[in-house]
Measured scan of single mutants.
Amino acid sequence: KVKIAGPGLGSGVRARVLQSFTVDSSKAGLAPLEVRVLGPRGLVEPVNVVDNGDGTHTVTYTPSQEGPYMVSVKYADEEIPRSPFKVKVL
């Protein structure tokens, strides 16, 4: 029921550039959304989540370095389908 889309989860994500993606939970009811961005060697990146007021949230983060990242998206305390997402930061 929760959908996710945006360039911040795709290929070609650049280090030190603001990345974003949208989480659409409009068909999933009200529940807490939790997003974690883990970088190389367990680095935890700050994440900004904005409630758009229409059942969607815009998530932004800036990867601080190149390497493999994991983006975990939980809704109602459960990983959404395909989460955690593997993101290769260049």
Score class of each variant (00 low, 15 high):
K1D: 00
K1C: 05
K1M: 15
V2H: 04
V2Q: 00
K3W: 06
K3F: 15
K3T: 13
K3Q: 09
K3M: 08
I4C: 13
I4W: 04
A5L: 13
A5G: 15
A5V: 15
G6L: 04
G6C: 04
G6Y: 08
G6A: 04
P7H: 07
P7I: 07
P7F: 08
P7Q: 08
P7D: 11
P7M: 15
P7W: 05
G8F: 04
G8R: 02
G8H: 04
G8W: 03
G8N: 04
L9I: 15
L9D: 03
L9V: 07
L9H: 03
L9K: 02
L9C: 06
G10E: 13
G10S: 08
G10W: 05
S11F: 11
S11D: 14
S11A: 10
G12Y: 14
G12Q: 13
G12T: 13
G12R: 10
G12C: 12
V13S: 03
V13D: 00
V13C: 08
V13Q: 06
V13G: 03
V13K: 01
R14Y: 14
R14D: 04
R14Q: 13
R14T: 14
R14A: 10
R14E: 14
A15P: 10
A15L: 08
R16K: 10
R16E: 12
R16V: 03
V17S: 09
V17T: 09
V17H: 07
V17A: 08
V17N: 06
V17L: 08
V17E: 13
V17I: 14
L18M: 12
L18Y: 05
Q19S: 06
Q19N: 08
Q19F: 03
Q19K: 02
S20R: 14
S20V: 13
S20H: 13
F21S: 01
F21D: 00
F21V: 02
F21G: 00
T22Y: 11
T22D: 07
V23P: 00
V23A: 03
V23E: 01
D24C: 04
S26F: 04
S26M: 05
K27Q: 11
A28K: 03
A28C: 07
A28T: 05
A28F: 01
A28L: 04
A28I: 04
G29F: 07
G29M: 08
L30Q: 12
L30I: 14
L30H: 15
L30N: 15
A31Y: 07
A31Q: 12
A31E: 14
P32K: 14
P32Q: 14
P32M: 07
L33M: 07
L33F: 06
L33A: 03
E34W: 08
E34G: 09
V35H: 03
V35C: 10
R36K: 15
R36Y: 08
V37A: 05
V37T: 02
V37R: 00
L38G: 09
L38A: 12
G39T: 06
G39D: 13
G39A: 07
G39R: 02
P40Q: 04
R41A: 15
R41T: 14
R41I: 11
R41Q: 13
G42S: 08
G42T: 05
G42E: 10
G42P: 02
L43I: 13
V44I: 13
V44T: 15
E45P: 04
E45H: 08
E45N: 06
E45K: 04
E45M: 07
P46S: 10
P46R: 09
P46M: 09
P46G: 07
P46E: 12
P46F: 06
P46I: 05
V47Y: 06
V47E: 03
V47D: 02
V47M: 05
V47N: 10
N48D: 12
V50W: 07
V50D: 14
V50Q: 15
D51V: 08
D51S: 13
G53V: 09
G53Y: 12
G53W: 09
D54G: 09
D54K: 11
D54H: 11
D54M: 09
G55A: 10
T56L: 12
T56H: 12
T56W: 06
T56F: 10
H57D: 03
T58K: 13
T58E: 10
T58F: 14
V59N: 00
V59H: 04
V59F: 06
V59Q: 02
V59K: 02
V59W: 02
V59A: 09
V59E: 01
T60E: 13
T60R: 10
T60K: 09
T60L: 09
Y61W: 11
Y61T: 00
T62K: 08
T62C: 07
P63D: 01
S64R: 11
Q65K: 13
Q65F: 10
Q65H: 12
Q65P: 00
E66T: 11
E66S: 11
E66W: 10
G67S: 01
G67C: 01
P68G: 14
Y69D: 00
Y69W: 04
Y69G: 00
Y69C: 04
Y69S: 02
M70Q: 15
M70T: 15
M70R: 12
M70S: 13
M70H: 15
M70Y: 12
V71S: 00
V71C: 04
V71T: 00
S72W: 04
S72R: 11
S72K: 08
S72C: 07
S72I: 05
V73K: 00
K74P: 01
K74G: 01
Y75S: 03
Y75P: 00
Y75Q: 03
Y75H: 06
Y75L: 08
Y75A: 04
A76V: 03
A76W: 05
A76G: 13
A76M: 10
D77C: 08
D77M: 08
E78M: 11
E78G: 04
E78Y: 06
E78L: 07
E79Q: 10
E79Y: 07
E79V: 04
I80Y: 03
I80Q: 02
I80H: 12
P81S: 07
P81T: 07
R82P: 09
S83E: 03
S83C: 06
P84Y: 01
P84R: 02
P84T: 03
F85D: 02
F85R: 06
F85G: 01
K86P: 15
K86M: 14
V87P: 01
V87Q: 04
V87I: 13
K88Y: 15
K88I: 10
K88F: 11
K88T: 15
K88V: 13
V89Y: 03
V89M: 03
V89L: 02
V89H: 04
L90T: 10
L90N: 14
L90H: 15
L90V: 12
